[in-house]
Computed example of a mutant assay.
Amino acid sequence: MNRKVILTCALTGAGDTTGKSDFVPVTPEQIASDAIAAARAGASVVHIHVRNITTGQGSRDVGLYREVVRLVAESDVDPVINLTAGMGGDLVLDPNEPTTQLPGTDLVSGIDRLPHVEELRPEICTIDCGSLNFGEGSQVYVSTPDMLREGAARIQQLGVKPEMEIFDTGHLWFANIMVAEGLIDPPPLYQLCMGIPYGAPADAGLLQAMVNMLPDGAQWTSFAIGRNQMPWVAQSVLLGGHVRVGLEDNLYLSKGVKATNAQLTERAVGIIEDLGSSVATPDEARDILAIERKVSAE
């Protein structure tokens, strides 16, 4: 299994995790510092969300993204930059009055989820390929076919590589439709997201089935949340895919031991190498994904 594996570190996400670990970065300086540390530890790609500095909650503030990208660009490392474009899909309903939106709702159009992508033109941005009942309660993540087609077309116009986030098999079905319709330039990049309630469970057989659904020539990566994060690194490598780790998906290095993004990256590097593969450098990742290195944002 002598091949190059792209290793993504997802630094902070938008989940309510800042009170669960002091290592979860919040400010642009902290997020950029973790991105730099993860790249030094071996990450090919850094996946970036930003957070409200006061509340610690996820944010769509373009200025925060601009600052993180600037700080990483000015550092001594050059990871592939992957910005989330998933913020703006949260709908929280009153279960007794479902026409009433509750606090926590942040719902905008597919195009209105892209201002930071429009300005910063990262090498990769995510596109969440379907709607999902998001955990317990009455929160729904909304990403309709109309929103997806419009967003994918704009991302394509911007020259940004979309990482298609797949949370269930129906999402994969629709992602394949977008590829067939020419909305996704080759090679298409799929992220198979496992174990997030209530999407695809972290089941190795299901991962294999989803891999079998991918079109010829696709590049894919996968992750699972929580304690399944590191086993999923091995699962993905063994099935021919790339991998993702980071505090967005898991807070622990081992039972009871809180992790940093750099530590999770180092652990993943070890697993990849133990399986006979090697971690792609950022430039090797760019070649694999057919993306051009972007000029740093000012």
Rank of each mutant, 00 (worst) to 15 (best):
D16R: 12
G104E: 03
V160H: 12
T18R: 03
T126K: 04
G226K: 15
F167L: 14
P115M: 07
P28L: 03
G240P: 05
T12D: 01
V92G: 06
Q229E: 13
H242P: 06
M210K: 05
I225P: 09
E29W: 09
E163D: 06
D185N: 07
A209Y: 12
P79K: 09
I271Y: 10
L206E: 15
D34T: 02
R60S: 15
G19Y: 00
R227L: 12
S143Y: 09
T265N: 06
N261R: 01
L275A: 14
I48D: 06
G130E: 08
E181N: 05
I124S: 01
D283P: 02
L114P: 08
D168L: 09
G89D: 09
I48F: 08
V211E: 05
V68P: 10
N133D: 15
L107D: 06
M164G: 12
I111V: 15
T84A: 05
N261G: 05
G58L: 03
D112S: 14
G19Q: 03
I291G: 00
R286L: 00
S59V: 10
A39G: 10
A234C: 14
L148K: 09
L251F: 03
I177L: 13
G135A: 10
E119H: 04
C193V: 14
P95R: 08
D94F: 02
Q101G: 04
V117I: 15
T17P: 04
C193K: 12
P188I: 02
L264W: 03
Q208F: 11
H47M: 06
P186S: 00
L192G: 10
M164E: 03
A85L: 02
N176D: 12
G170R: 15
G241P: 06
L158C: 11
T54E: 15
G130I: 04
G110W: 01
D185H: 06
Q191V: 01
T144K: 10
D216Q: 08
Y141G: 08
A224M: 07
T99I: 07
C129R: 05
M210S: 11
D203G: 09
L107R: 08
L158Q: 13
R267A: 14
L11R: 02
G89F: 10
T12G: 02
M210E: 15
G226T: 11
G56H: 01
G151T: 14
R113E: 03
G56W: 00
I6L: 08
L214Y: 07
C125M: 07
A202H: 08
D274R: 13
K255D: 15
P188N: 02
L11M: 07
W173T: 13
D185S: 09
S236W: 06
L289I: 00
D22G: 00
G42L: 03
L253K: 10
T100H: 13
L183T: 04
L264G: 10
Y252L: 11
R113P: 06
M194Q: 15
M213W: 04
I291Q: 02
